[in-house]
Amino acid sequence: MRSFQNRLLDFTARGVRVAAISVDSVEINRGHAQKMHFTFPLLSDADAAVIRRYDLLHRGAGPKNTDIARPAEFYVDANGTVQWVNLTENIAVRARPEQALSAIDAAKGGRRD
């Protein structure tokens, strides 16, 4: 997520917001955002309701066998339609901002309106 923060201007230049979602509490997110200098919203889905709705629940993978989110990245266009999704098969391998940016540019180029 640090890499997304580093490229945040490239997203805002395209009119695209960046937001991150996890089961972390608002307090943890506040501390983490301060420590890492994250300026995009870290959203707290403490009961994993949204994570469940996106079918991204990783059962028992958190502390004391709690349910957490598996890593995943989406680009959702202004109409709310998913234009790009990255579901990693390895927790250590996450999407790079460049992948998301090229997906954004591809979605723009392919739009017919």
């Binding site: 917001r17 972390d24 990245e73």
Partner: peptide, 15 residues
């Protein structure tokens, strides 16, 4: 989404 959509990053968290 208001302007040109959004990138959503789901992550495991720091607990």
């Amino acid at each position: 989404l208001s302007s040109n959509g959004a990138v959503l990053i789901f992550y495991r968290g720091h607990w």
